[in-house]
């Protein structure tokens, strides 16, 4: 078996509106390999969320195919297998928490999957442990902070023991503390269990921490590569209304002023080291 967790082939999606058919994307190809952490960038309305919903058969392609671990998302009998393989976390934590008690919410997915009772308890315990929310297991979710709620939502997905987690702007509604909590949690998941992560985000500092960055514009990919490869294309990103991480922006501006600096020192410390070298 190949190591592609997600594979879209000539993926096309259109839907009907009052003004006729609207095409979100056409002939999109992308493969996400096991263990990757992929950031998907693009401004609102570029088709990122629609793409994400194809990865666990919430939406089905109107043309082309999407495969999850080799399973065609269009096949009805594989629906539950697909959804348990690719977990989804959305932007608004309030609208994805089903139960009024933390542990009952985390148990929701395994209950739906018909997991035996003893194993549900085990999965809930370990999912809560992983996101560091064990002590809140009997709390009411609506009293938690945004970051905590989002970690509960991640735990709810982990309880399915997914191969891959797709997160659609999970930090958009959070404060800096919450954002840091969520980023730490998903990166740790990837590092420890090798869980494949697809992260849709507007925050370049988050994308800079991923292993791969793809940029979407008007329903197609305009850049795909390591953060270093993508973020050094400053004009391209600015042209589509995106930012680059401040480290790259700083290096870019300094280069324009004649400093002999590399563009790909993405991390703060790396960037500082590069600048220090030319300042001496």
């Amino acid at each position: 078996m190949d190591d592609a967790v997600l594979r879209a082939e000539k993926l096309t999606f259109e839907y009907d509106t009052d003004d006729g058919e609207l095409e979100v994307f056409r002939d999109l190809d992308i493969t996400v390999k096991r263990g990757e952490v992929v950031a998907v960038l693009g401004h609102n309305g570029c088709g990122k969320s629609t793409l994400a919903k194809h990865f666990n058969a919430i939406l089905l392609p109107t043309g082309g195919k999407v495969y999850v671990m080799g399973m065609d998302t269009a096949s009805d009998d594989l629906l539950l297998d697909i959804r348990r393989t690719v977990g989804m976390v959305f932007q608004n934590p309030d609208n994805q928490i089903v139960a009024a008690v933390v542990e009952e919410d985390v148990a929701f997915a395994p209950e739906n999957l018909g997991v035996p009772q003893a194993e549900i308890v085990e999965r809930v315990d370990s999912a809560l442990e992983t996101v560091g929310m064990t002590e809140y297991r009997n709390h009411a979710p609506h009293r938690l902070s945004g970051g905590q709620k989002q970690r509960i939502a991640i735990a709810g997905v982990l309880a399915m023991r997914p191969e891959c987690i797709v997160l659609d702007e999970p930090t958009a509604m959070l404060d800096p503390v919450g954002r840091a909590e969520v980023m730490k949690t998903i990166l740790e998941l990837n590092r420890r269990d090798g869980t494949t992560i697809v992260l849709i985000t507007h925050h370049m500092d988050e994308a800079a921490q991923c292993s791969r960055v793809v940029v979407m514009e008007d329903g197609s990919f305009i850049a795909d590569g390591t953060p270093e490869e993508v973020f050094t294309q400053v004009e391209l990103l600015r042209g589509v209304g995106l930012e680059v991480p401040q480290t790259v922006e700083l290096l870019y501006e300094l280069r324009k002023r004649g400093f002999n600096l590399p563009l790909d020192a993405l991390g703060c410390d790396e960037c500082a080291a590069a600048i220090a070298a030319v300042m001496r």
Binding site: Q246, C268, A272, A273
Partner: peptide, 27 residues
Amino acid sequence: MVTKVFRELKRLGVAVDPAVYTVEDGV
């Protein structure tokens, strides 16, 4: 991030004011 870069620069012994919050100020 740019503030973090400047804090690190200062730590590395570069004579800069670490109170920088925008890229323009940094440049």
